[in-house]
Design a protein around this nucleic acid. Structure first.
Length: 424
RNA sequence: GGAGAGAUGGCAGAGUGGUCUAAUGCGGCGGUCUUGAAAACCGUUGUACCUUUAGGUACCGGGGGUUCGAAUCCCUCUCUCUCCGCCA
């Protein structure tokens, strides 16, 4: 959520930036400014009346104390009309406040100046690539067939237990999952991230804080009986730790990491790259989150990008880093780098991480602030997050790229975690 | 699931209808003293919004109500603690 100050003080600039995100904000920004003005006028009126009533009440109190009941009765009469006015004004004020909020949450975050223009994924910019695409044997298989062949991955049983998109890993497949999680967490810890193991369900406030609610409500599994949501990413609990928090400037940087299963309904995406592990309803992911000083958040973003890149390099996967264009970025993002690895048997690039600086967009919803050392005033912090890394597509690429006549070779860095070198 | 108690500032903790503009203590910050530090003493110490020389309004777990006036009374929800039951 943008702040009113951002919109009030730089209206033309805001409109210009929104255009880059393919969002025509002219109409909504105008009504935000109007509604804001209206709300402020109402507040001034309401505050004045309230102040008047408070004065009268004090007087009545004094008169009662000194026994002048008749005079008190006279003043009491005066408060009747005033109270009615305050009630009506209060209702209008609250309503206007709600209208303003409803408008504000519809405006996407402003893109960073370096975000490339563009309408969709075709306009994203590959900023770096690395690793080598493997040469596969003649009879190379996609990962869903490899999973069957080596009995490590069973989609049919997952469907039996739950439904489509809930894969079941078994034997060395299950152990590979555990190895990857351990490897990622250890690497993140070495890079200065503190490990968390958060709740997998969150309440409405948390869903709102990181921006999943209300707009992406249909993408989360909702436990209606208790009004909880299954988390679509660890970002939600791990960032909401800092909801309604005022940090000290020297608390920065905060670096957190967490492994969690992630649950996504993926409504509306049926039939689009959904084979095998490419798109599933439940998957494992290790997430990194940073809370930073506004002046340092882009440094932090680069640091996170470098860190994620190192993880992929250590897994020996061919990859590319993509800077998302204005039209392809998420609603909440100011700047996003996607990481894609190449799954050779499918001949496809699969997104395995999305590293984003939200600037103060989430912080404003979260009321996540810090106290400025110099001015002693509170100010919104910046939040960032990224996957380090999401497992299923990494597994897909590992299985496909590392298949040999002898079986699937486990990357060197994982062998201490798996306890085996090859899946055969 | 049943019964009871409770939720007040960074923390502890008083306040049960009218200077509450929230006591007091601890902590934090500034100062005096000191070679320096500690102790002692003095001062200061929440958030947000409106208007801005100065003010004003709201906030005592959330929401609603009674009243001229609510931290205080009533209703309701959430959470915490104690005991019982069930259970990994």
């Amino acid at each position: 959520m943008l702040t009113l100050n951002q919109i009030r003080e730089n209206t033309p600039e805001v409109l210009e930036k929104l255009k880059k995100k393919n969002f025509n904000g002219q109409e909504i920004i105008t009504s935000i400014l109007d509604t804001d003005k209206k709300r402020r006028n109402l507040q001034f009126e309401l505050d004045s009346k309230q102040s008047e009533l408070n004065d009268l009440s004090k007087k009545i109190g004094e008169l009662f104390k000194t026994g002048k009941k008749d005079e008190a009765q006279v003043i009491k009469q005066k408060t009747i009309g005033l109270k009615e006015e305050i009630k009506l004004l209060g209702e209008e004020f609250d309503q206007t406040g709600n209208e303003l909020r409803d408008l504000l949450i519809q405006v996407p975050n402003l893109p960073h100046h370096s975000v490339p223009p563009g309408k969709g994924s075709a306009d994203n910019v590959v900023v770096k690539s690395g690793g080598e695409k493997p040469r596969l044997p003649e009879d190379a298989m996609p990962h869903w067939e490899l999973g069957k062949k080596y009995e490590i991955l069973d989609f049919d049983l997952g469907t039996k237990l739950t439904g489509a998109g809930f894969p079941l890993f078994k034997g060395k497949g299950a152990k590979l999952q555990r190895a990857l999680i351990g490897f990622f967490l250890d690497e993140n810890e070495k890079a200065g991230y503190t490990e968390f193991s958060p709740p997998l369900m969150v309440n409405e406030d948390s869903g709102f804080g990181t921006g999943q609610l209300p707009d992406k409500e249909g993408q989360m599994y909702h436990i209606t009986m208790d009004n909880y949501y299954l988390i679509p990413t660890a970002e939600v609990p791990v960032t909401n730790i800092y909801r309604d928090v005022i940090l000290d400037a020297n608390d920065f940087p905060i670096r957190n990491t967490a492994y969690t299963p992630c649950f996504r309904r993926e409504a509306g995406s049926y039939g689009k790259d959904v084979r095998g592990l490419n798109r599933v309803h439940q998957f494992d992911k290790v997430e990194i989150v940073q809370i930073q000083h506004p002046e340092k958040s882009y440094e932090a973003l680069e640091e996170m990008v470098n860190h994620v890149e190192q993880l992929i390099i250590k897994l020996e996967l061919p990859y590319r880093i993509v800077k998302l264009c204005g039209g392809d970025m998420s609603f909440t993002s100011a700047l996003t780098y996607d990481f894609e690895v190449f799954a050779a048997a499918q001949n496809k690039w699969l997104e395995v991480s999305s590293v984003t600086n939200f600037e103060s967009f989430q912080a404003n919803r979260l009321k996540l602030r810090f106290r400025d050392d110099v001015t002693k005033k509170t100010q919104l912090a910046h939040t960032l997050n990224g996957s380090a890394l999401a497992l299923p597509r990494i597994v897909a690429a590992l299985l496909e790229n590392n298949q040999t006549e002898k079986g699937i070779m486990v990357p060197l860095v994982l062998r201490a975690y798996t306890g085996f070198d090859v899946i055969s």
